[in-house]
Design a protein around this nucleic acid. Sequence first.
DNA 1: CCGTCCTCCTGGCCGC
DNA 2: TGCGGCCAGGAGGACG
Length: 274
Amino acid sequence: MPELPEVETIRRSLVDKVEGRQIHGVEILLPRLIKWPSAHEFQALVTGKTIQQLDRKGKYLILRLEDNMTIVIHLRMTGRLYFVNSGEKPDRFTHIIFDLGTGNKLFYADTRTLGTLYAMPESELWRIAGLASMGPEPLSAEFSPAYFCGLLSARKGRIKALLLNQKLIGGLGNIYVDEALAIAGIDPDRLAYTLNEEETARLYQAVNQVIDEGINHGGTTFRDYRDGTGKSGSHQNYLSVYGRKGQPCKRCGAPIERKEVAGRGTHYCPNCQR
DNA sequence: CCGTCCTCCTGGCCGC
DNA sequence: TGCGGCCAGGAGGACG
């Protein structure tokens, strides 16, 4: 599941390969993945344009083309964007193919087909609500201790739901939320406003730490995730709780448990997280 | 306004 | 060995 560290790793692995390249054509094998405008209009808007910059905001990839055109991609659960050399054949999960010329292509593949793609002028990016209303990202100046503290005191919901809410904090998903709560020693079921000053400071630090480490390890490869060159990440080797149900807590040895919090499968140490 | 639940989608895994 | 059923979860919409 690509979260901020995975999407950032994909961006870094592709930036030198796509910036300055022209989109010679687009093959759309599964039109319903194009959320705006129609698949036909998408092709017309981007064909012939040069990719000037590859950006990321939260879990969104943003390809900035000439003439202020943009392609926005959200990988959701199983989306993959990768660069291929001439001769590489698309498999049955490859749904969109960008032809970059001289045999190079950019494949968008997606087993569960939940990913979304958009093309529009930069001035119309407000149409993508999830992008326009996204909260500040961990590690950014905007994501300050004061901002985080203000979020927690104002909310009645569970801390896990708050951390997953992209309008409040951009880029966290289920894996990094469980990890941050484990590092901070906080039960995911806690109501946000009940965290005291010291717990809030620990959680703030932990959120930034897991995102920083996730990026440094090239993301977490559980099943589908690969970077833009097909390489796996390594952060799965450093996880405290996610996917470790029944295995001993690395801090206290108690078995990691799994429960449902805020409608999500949630991994935690019942001994260390209170 | 806010929080909770449902929906989309398919491969992989579990149990009989 | 085959197959039904359930699970994975990001985000948007319905609903209270």
